[in-house]
Every structure is written in structure tokens, then in C-alpha cells.
Design a protein around this nucleic acid. Sequence first.
DNA 1: CGCCAAATTGACCGAGCTCAAAACGAGTGG
DNA 2: CCACTCGTTTTGAGCTCGGTCAATTTGGCG
Lengths: 236, 236
Amino acid sequence: LRQFCQQAGAAGAFPAPEPAQAGKLVPLARGASLFRVGDAEGAVYVVRTGALKTIAVTEDGEEHVLGFHLPGELLGLDSLASGQHCVEAVALAETHVCVVSMHTLLSRSSATPGLSRELLQVFGRTAMDCHAHVDVLLRRQAGERIAMFLHGLLLRFQRDSSTSLELNLPMSREDVGRYLGLALETVSRGFTRLQDDGVIAVAGRAVRILNPDELRRIALLPPSGTDSEPPLERQA
Amino acid sequence: LRQFCQQAGAAGAFPAPEPAQAGKLVPLARGASLFRVGDAEGAVYVVRTGALKTIAVTEDGEEHVLGFHLPGELLGLDSLASGQHCVEAVALAETHVCVVSMHTLLSRSSATPGLSRELLQVFGRTAMDCHAHVDVLLRRQAGERIAMFLHGLLLRFQRDSSTSLELNLPMSREDVGRYLGLALETVSRGFTRLQDDGVIAVAGRAVRILNPDELRRIALLPPSGTDSEPPLERQA
DNA sequence: CGCCAAATTGACCGAGCTCAAAACGAGTGG
DNA sequence: CCACTCGTTTTGAGCTCGGTCAATTTGGCG
């Protein structure tokens, strides 16, 4: 109980700025909404256990999945700007989230000068996530999108459980499809194709990455290892 | 000269917080880069005249267009979080941008409590733009994407030039395609189709919107008029 | 054991990509 | 003023990837 939202620190976001008073722990049943479009609660949330998706429902009733949120990650920042949520957040399983009230956050950030910069980085991170999503969607081939999706999930899972190659997907094939802009059948076929090629082993929602390098290659990503070696002028 | 970046106010972003000292006016030739990936300048930019695109180049040399930036709009916020740019900005025509140094911005925002909230809204706006882009890319039909794209541009153009229905696209068909995840030929065909249906009149990069309502209908957007009537509990 | 949701697999077909050619427009030089 | 060039846009003709429809299998749960 005493560590509360400090997992968020592990997510590279908050360096554990919440001692114990900050947030309540809210339980959510599978399929329950944490917030809906138009809600003006003024709070952000940290996922403790379980997982959520953020969705936008279009005029014609289609559901677009904008993102998935795993333990240790944040959601709800979309309300900071306009004051009310422009997306809906739905639990994918039994989930617990930690509530950080906007009030607390703002007063605290104006008090501590360092936190304000932290906050800026958090925003930057969400912006980067969105860009990454766009980057995936701009890829033409379904296989590439699926490989990129799995690779991204792998990185996020590895933040806690070190270098495990096991993924337990919290979302359905349909959700993946609505996130990647593909039909659910195409997602399923993509998984089986990767399995046939010996890149992954699929058993329902349990996925084991057999060949991370090959996965990266299919996703057209830099081979591995050192992220962003220092720019050239640093050498010599 | 004296109004400098105040057009940004017209874009709904800054309420003219820059008196005269803040930024230099930088000229850019068509095709020139304002910044590249890895640049660590620590500044944001306001478009004065012309237009730019922000792009990300993938491993295999493909160019993904992440956004277009018209006069009065901002770009370069991606460097705020990580400290260095993760995308490249290229001028689509002869362009002038106003530089707002990060230094100025931060010191000013910590001084004025109100500006910090403004800044938050600016971030929110860019996040919304990104979400909107995702939303477009998640649409399955090419026609919907193109209609949405045109409609979005129309709204942005109408911010300055009141209710004009003329668009002068600053970007090529190829750029549009790389923004929408479509082949350039598909974009061209989409335009001609809209023209055949009497929705728009196309002449190269000059586009006239003949039937805004029909355009919205094709883009699967709410009919028109009042954005977001108050939620139900406000009534009665 | 039966029920229902989720996932897989197959067959078909159409939207959109690719390749290719033509039309257009703007700038340049004779 | 015209001829020429180069980039952009349009249009055409095939073919493929992936969407759609449908049947089957799997797995969880009462």
C-alpha cells in the first residue's frame, strides 16, 4: 500500500512525487469506463494493475482505439488542456488506477520548479506516443504495423519485468485491429504468419517473442542495442 | 513589424505575449529545413507566411508527413520534452517564421502564472492535432480521409480569411498522400471524385469548396454549426 | 456438458497500390 | 513568341493486399 503510485517512476514519468496522500486507489471491472467524453473531473490517472484502452467513437458508431495503458503508465492528460476529456477510457480487465487530482498536481508543480520540468517531460512522452502511433498507421503493409505493435509492447513490458520475452496481451484482436486500422482477421492472420516464420509463438493472448531482431527487421526499425548514439560532433 | 508573432493569437494559441524583443524573423527558401532530427536548439516557431511540413524519415527511406503548419500556427514543441527535435521541419514554399526562444518562454511562463496555463493549452492543442491525425488514419476508406483532410484545412484557413471557401494548398499531392497514408494517385483520384460529385472544384492546388455540408457528410463529421452543445445534465 | 465470446481459417472480391503514359503548367533560353 | 524542359498532376490498366462474409475451432465459465 505504501508504494502507491511509485510504479509511475518506473515508467520514466514521475520520480515518485506522491507520498501517500495524493491519490485514491480506484477499482474497475472489465469493460467499465474510467471516464467518458465530456467528463470534467480534472485528474490524471496512473495504472496500478490491469490495463485500459482509450477510445474515440465516431459518428457512424465505429470505435477507434487511440492507445493502450499498461501498469505504471499514465492516462487522462487529454483533460488538462481543454478542462474536459475528449476521449473515453475503458478497462480491458480487472484494473486498479491511482487518481492524481489536477488540483494537487498544479499546486505542486507551481511550488516545485523541478516538477514543472518533469511535467513537461510527461507531456512530451504522451506526444511522442501519439507520434509513434501515427508512424505505425502511416506504414502501408499490415505486417509491418503488427510487428511494430508487438515490438512496442515488448519494450513497454520489459520496463518492469526486465528482459522477459513473454507478452500477455490484455486486449482482444479486435482492439488491436481498431488500434492499427486493420480488420481483426488481418491481425489474427498477421500473428499466425509471424508464428509460421518463427518470429513469435502465439497461444491466444499469450505471445512469446522468439526472434526480437527479426521482429525489428520486419518492423523496419533500427537493429537493436544502443538507442541513439551521440551525434557526430561528440566523437573524435 | 510591430505585430510580430501576434498572429499566433489569431490561431487561438498565444494571447499576444510577445511585445517586440522576443523573436527574430527567419526566412526560409522552398525545400529548406527549419530544423532536423537531433537539433537541440530549444526554441519554438510561429509561422508568419508560407507553410511547412514536419516529417519523419523511416529506416527504409520513406518520408512520413506528421503535420502541416500554416501561418499563425506553431511548430517545434517536440523539442520541449526531450530537449532535442525528433522530427524535421521543411518549408513548402518561401516561408517566414518567428523564433521564440525556449529560454524566453520558460522564464516568462514561470513568472506569469496565467501564461503557464496558456502554455498547457498550447500543448493540449498539439496533442489534439495529433489525435485528429490518428483519427483520420484510422478511417478505412480513402475518400473519408481525403474529405476529412480538406475539411480540416478549410477550418484552419477560415481562422484568418473569415468564411472564404477557397483553399490554396501549399503541399503537393505526394505530401498529402504521405500525410494520409495513401498513394499520391489515390489522392488525385479522390479529388477528381469529389469534383465529379459537385462537392469541390479542383484546379491544381487551388480548391474551392462548393458544398461544405456534403463534405462533412462524406467525412462522417457532425453536420455543422455549434460545436459541442453542453452535456445533457446542463439542460432542464 | 453446454453455452457464448474470442480466435482461427477459408473463399471471394473490391479498394487501392503499382507501373506506365499522357496532359498540364511554370520557368528558361533561343 | 515559341520551343524545350522539368516537375506536378491526371488518367488508365492490371494485380495484390487486405476487407468482408462465413464456417470452424478454441477456451472460459456456469
